[in-house]
Each structure stands twice: as C-alpha cells, then as structure tokens.
Design a protein around this nucleic acid. Structure first.
Lengths: 194, 194
DNA sequence: TAGTTACTAGACCGGTCTGTATAGTTCCCG
DNA sequence: CGGGAACTATACAGACCGGTCTAGTAACTA
C-alpha cells in the first residue's frame, strides 16, 4: 500500500536540519516532532528504530543532497581549482545565510557519534562518497592518479575543519583561507603532474 | 586561605577527558563526578557556574596542555615541514593509543557549542593561540609573512578535519594523508618564498 | 458494508539531566 | 578551646529524555 501522507518526509527533513545545527545528543525528539508538526506515535510508526534510525536516514539524506550540490558545482567548473573554489564559496554562503547556525550536515553529528556504529558508518559512507567525487574531479583535471586519493581526503578534511573554525568564530575567513590554500595545493600538484 | 584538597583539579581533568571523548551534551555531570570521585556538593562549591564553567575551564586547560605539546614538537624540529609532520604523527599516535576515543580536545566540544557564547569564545581563544604558534613556526622556517596567517589557519583546519575523519573511520589514514599534503603545501610556499 | 491497512494522537513510563538545599566534617588560626 | 573558612556528602527538585502503549481516525479494498 502506498504512502498517504508526507509526515515521514517532513519529520526526516526537520531532523536533518536540527541534527545539522545542534548535533545528535543536543537534538531531542520532542523538538523534532514539534517543529516537524507530528505526534510521537507517528514518529515511531515511521521510524521504529527510534532516534538512531532517524539520524542514520537524516544523515544519508543530507549527505546525498549536498553530494548533488557539490557534483553540480564541480561539473560546471572548467578545472578542479575553480571547482573546489566554487564549492568552498557555496559552503561559505550557506554559513553566512544561516548566521553560522548550519554547519556541515555530517561534521557535527560525526564528531559526537563515534561510539555509535550505525551512525558512524552512515557518516563514513557519505564522507567516502564525497571523497570519491572530489577525486574524480581532480583526476579529470589533470592531477596524477597516485596523489589524487590523498589530495581528495585532504580537501574534505580541510573543508570540514574550515567550517568548524568558521562556525566557532562566526566568521567565514577561516573557511575562505582554507579555500585559498587548497587551490594553491591543487595547482602545485598540477604543475608537478606535467 | 589556600586550597586543602585536589578535588578541583581532579574534577577538572576528568571533565576535560570526558568532554574530549564525548562532547559537551553527551557528558553528564554525574559521570564526571563518579569518575572524578567527588560528590555533587563539591562540584558546585568549586564550580559555582555549573557545567558551563566546568567546560570553559576544561577547554582552556586541555588547550593549554596541547599547546605546550605542540610547541615542544615544533621547537625540537629543524624546519616547519618536519615540525608539522611531527605534530600530525603525535596526534595520530594519540588516536591509536586511545582506540580512536580521544579526538581533538576542542573539536568535539566546539562543534556542538556554537550557540553557547562562553564556551564558543573559550574554544576560539585556544584555536587562535594554536594558529599563532603555527604561524610563528612557519615564518621562522622561511614562509613569507603575508601567506603565513592563511597557511597557519589551513594547517589547524586540515588537522581538525583529519582527526574528525580518522575518528569517524577508526583509521589514522585520513590524518596521515592530511599530514602528507600539508607538508607538500608548506614546501610549495617555501619554494615560492625564495 | 465490513475489514484491513496506514496513520494520528497523546498519555504515560522509568530514568537521567542540571542544579539546589542543607547538614556535617575537617582544618587552620587566634 | 572557639569560630570560621574550606570542603564533603547526600537528598531532593523540577524538567526533560527516549521510548511504549493503547485508542482512535481516515482511506482504500473485497
């Protein structure tokens, strides 16, 4: 039998947003339900696995959405340098627009759920998807294949750290500095690859 | 009148360790007290500001301690490249030794306390201290003064992100990749500076 | 129309959270 | 010895936590 309501999606999106802003532990189910406009019974009907299942699905959803955004930016760029620069700018815009409340949809949750295997692995899967996306863009742009995996990991790490610092300082400057240095690094690898 | 017991220090160190492993919200005062071996009355005698004050002091303590460690490693290195490499290796060792339970003493807390100004600023102060430490080492090693601030920010961000990824994957590889790429980047700047 | 599935609604449970209140103990100082 | 400061010890308050339960409603189907 098909779904008859959009409650599940509504709750999921609300949860993704709240987890992103506040992290896993700081986000209560009551808050999710209130902001999502659903009673408790509905939550445990749609997510019998409770908070953990909600988090896993919310992370996967948010990760996939951001993945599409990143892929779009990278695809519309002519080379990996401007591609990474574009991604960083997009993330910085998002930070400013939300007054530094929305960080990376994974970073905050991943940081505080190391001891929860289900959530940890959900985050790891998304991180790996992102990394591969960046790696492909780097290789396509001329970065040698042997350094691309490591450089892609560095890119993800630096951007995560940059978002963390930016949020902590309520200033995009650290993230923009990361962008500048990242493009510098990629350029250096492109020179070496030739 | 001078202190007569070490309860305050004991509780503070326990809190620093637990905040580091679990983050702010996931760490309960009862747990801190139990592991620190102190009753509740003592906590609110020594830290009338409650959990928030405890966190601010624990962050400052842990930040200062790690600052000393970093400064020691950087000072014993002959150049910034091997210095940064040494710091990354030390952090990776710490991750492995704790079975990936201990992350950066600030990262986890900073990520989930963006909306708490006191804690946020305590973290920001430590981050800035670290950044300046790295910046000085870079300049001393020959990195041009105009790029050193940005490169130092990049270093902190990348290392934070690397620790996050390593903890999430339970594998130091991402952090080591960050180390490799960071040294590469510093070398590139040293070449340009000449 | 009767039955079944999809879903809503919210009261309720035991437990834990931060924080308070108050009494007791230990030690130094005069 | 007396008094006060430093500190311990625990009981308790009030709110909130994630999660369970049961009853009810709406829509589709046989």
């Amino acid at each position: 039998m098909p779904r008859r309501t959009d409650t599940r999606q509504r709750v999921l999106h609300t949860a993704a947003e709240l987890f992103r802003r506040q992290g896993y532990q700081a986000t209560g189910l009551n808050q999710v339900l209130q902001e999502g406009g659903a009673p408790k019974g509905s939550l445990y009907f749609h997510f019998p696995g409770g908070k953990e299942q909600l988090a896993v699905e919310a992370i996967t959803l948010a990760g996939t959405e951001l993945c599409d955004t990143i892929a779009g930016v990278l695809a519309s760029a002519t080379d990996p340098v401007s591609g990474v620069d574009g991604v960083v700018r997009a993330l910085a815009d998002d930070l400013v627009r939300s007054d530094f409340r929305r960080g990376c949809p994974l970073g905050t949750v991943a940081q505080t759920t190391v001891d929860n295997d289900a959530i940890r692995q959900a985050c790891a899967a998304v991180f790996e998807t992102w990394r591969r996306l960046v790696e492909r863009a780097l290789v396509a742009g001329g970065v040698p294949e042997d350094v691309a995996p490591s450089l892609a990991t560095m890119t993800i790490a630096a951007v995560e750290g940059g978002q963390l610092l930016a949020r902590n300082q309520k200033d995009v400057a650290p993230l923009l500095a990361v962008g500048t240095q990242l493009t510098e690094l990629i350029r250096a690898h492109l020179r070496e690859g030739q």
